[in-house]
Amino acid sequence: MRTALVIGTGLIGTSVGLALAARGVAVHLSDHDPGTARTAAALGAGTEEPPEGPVDLAVVAVPPAHVAATVAGAIRAGLARACIDVASVKSGPRRELEALGADLGSYLGTHPMAGKERSGPLAATADLFEGRPWVLTPGKGTDTEALNLALELVSLCRAVPVVMDAEAHDRAVALVSHTPQLMSSLVAARLRGAEESAVRLCGQGVRDVTRIAASDPGMWIDILTANPGPVADVLADVAVDLGEAVQALRALESCDDDKRQGGVRAVEDLLRRGNAGRSRVPGKHGAAPAAYEIVAVLVTDRPGELARIFADAGAAGVNVEDVSIEHATDQQAGLVQLMVEPSAAPVLSAALRERGWSIRQ
């Protein structure tokens, strides 16, 4: 691949442009908003100048509702040897393209499983896709050239290709992406009218659960409008679980010992099913999540503190597998939770204490 055209210069499109440009591909940028394309170009994602002829690959990075029309237009205009889209829903746009009578041999629906709560070109990075799954949904008539160019794009972006059926993809993202967004928003919405005294008690748990609730509503309306059925199916199952959880908790209020014990068993079953589901989420390097030990360190809010703690961990010969920060309310401090292999936890704790760090059990 020597040339590419990115149509739509938001977070994903600009990140694609940055990744390709960094690897020597001549990238041309197009957007319905010239200012957005200009911003992406200024960031180094490519040039606003139109290509002189057909490029190797056109990457359509527009909202799902506009994918079919944009792809059909690109194919009919002969803008590229092959054309892909990167929308988060796959079966709907393909059906629309078929209805439009577009020649789909040179088209391939794809979806990089990467993103941020922030949107727009200023949030883009060249390494956004590194190590992330990138779903490819070839159809029966997809040309080999289109598939090969898509695979080359995934490789240049340093992502991991995953081939799936379009409908299976939409059901999968409904479960692992779209429903979690709504669940996060539902929990966060309960905070809107909560007493200030309650909100001030928010800890890391509620921060983790509500992180993605900060996402752009407009973007998610586009996504959910394109995949409503599979998301509704998952939510219906969650609603059944919620109803059973409510009944179990009500039983815990009962004066009847049998009802209370039944409630305990039901709540325990829910929590254990949650444990089992969580254990299936891929961990580091795609492997099953490891049981790490947490070394919690009190850190003050001063420049260089995080760098110093990681340097001290490295000096102790300990590899930090993961990290999270829990901020203290109304204090210029927080707890840095360093996740390490169980055998390394005592070594790290002792080394950090020697270097003056305050360790919390």
Rank of each mutant, 00 (worst) to 15 (best):
D301F: 04
E341W: 05
V281N: 10
L306Y: 10
E321Q: 14
V320P: 11
P303N: 12
P289G: 02
N275P: 00
G304P: 05
F310D: 03
A316E: 06
K284A: 05
F310H: 11
S279W: 02
A290K: 09
Y292C: 02
M339Y: 13
A291N: 10
V336R: 06
D322S: 15
H327C: 06
S343I: 03
E341G: 00
V340T: 06
S279G: 00
G334A: 08
G304H: 05
I294V: 15
D312R: 11
A316R: 11
I309K: 07
V281I: 15
S324H: 12
R308N: 05
A311W: 05
R280N: 08
V318K: 09
A315D: 15
G314N: 14
R302T: 08
D330N: 06
E321G: 11
S279F: 00
H285V: 01
A307R: 14
Y292Q: 01
A315F: 04
H285I: 01
A276K: 12
T300N: 14
P303V: 10
V299P: 00
V336D: 12
P289T: 03
G283S: 04
E305V: 08
R278P: 01
A316Q: 13
N319C: 03
Q331T: 02
A328D: 14
E326L: 13
H327P: 06
Q332D: 11
P289K: 07
T300Q: 11
A333G: 08
A328K: 03
S343P: 00
L338V: 12
A288T: 04
E326R: 13
L335I: 05
N319F: 05
S279M: 02
A328C: 11
N275M: 05
A291Q: 10
A276H: 12
S343H: 08
M339P: 00
G277T: 05
G314L: 02
G314M: 03
A328I: 01
R302F: 07
Y292E: 00
A307S: 08
M339V: 01
I309D: 10
V318N: 02
V281Q: 09
L335G: 00
M339A: 15
I294A: 14
P289Y: 03
V295C: 04
A313G: 13
P289M: 01
P342F: 09
P303T: 07
G334E: 08
N275D: 14
V281H: 06
D301R: 07
Q337K: 15
L298K: 14
H327N: 10
T300Y: 10
E341I: 02
G277P: 14
V340Q: 03
V323K: 11
A290H: 05
A313K: 13
G277V: 10
G277I: 04
